[in-house]
């Protein structure tokens, strides 16, 4: 099952929670030396670090968080954008894509988890 299928199959908040916990395990954690202030995304109550790499014109992000569900959200987000060009990422409606993955509540409660800040950092 793709990440999209996994998340779209969730029928309740509890199932989404469990799916994100499961997804979080596949995130490659960042070493301590890469978790710098510079890489920290502002506005997140859980700490989130995002590192952008350009490989032959394609964007690849590495990311980490101290909160498990956020790591699950990051897996879903990286899956959406990694390998695309910056212009393609900028053209995406990432908020809508997250809503389609049953992760809409992570946007409405953005004040506490700062997902909008992550989307902004990915597109700029």
């Amino acid at each position: 099952m793709t990440i999209k299928q996994q998340l779209q199959a969730c029928r309740s908040k509890e199932e989404t929670f469990k799916a994100l916990v499961s997804l979080s395990k596949s995130l490659a954690r960042l070493p301590a030396e890469e978790k710098t202030e510079e890489h920290k995304v502002k506005g997140c109550e859980s700490a989130v670090w995002l590192i952008e790499q350009d490989i032959d014109g394609a964007c690849y992000f590495k990311a980490d968080s101290d909160a498990k569900l956020m790591r699950g959200v990051l897996v879903a987000l990286l899956n959406l954008v990694n390998g695309k060009s910056k212009a393609d990422i900028q053209a995406m409606d990432l908020a809508n894509e997250l809503a389609e993955l049953n992760l809409g509540s992570y946007l409405t409660s953005s004040r506490s988890n700062g997902v909008l800040g992550i989307l902004h950092a990915m597109q700029n």
Binding site: S12, K13, E14, T16, F17, E45, S46, D66, A67, K68, L69, M70, S112, N113
Partner: peptide
Amino acid sequence: HTLDLNAYLDSQGIAVRAG
């Protein structure tokens, strides 16, 4: 993380505060 605990409590209809 307290936010993770909060998310599970919320999924069960329990409102608390994390932060």
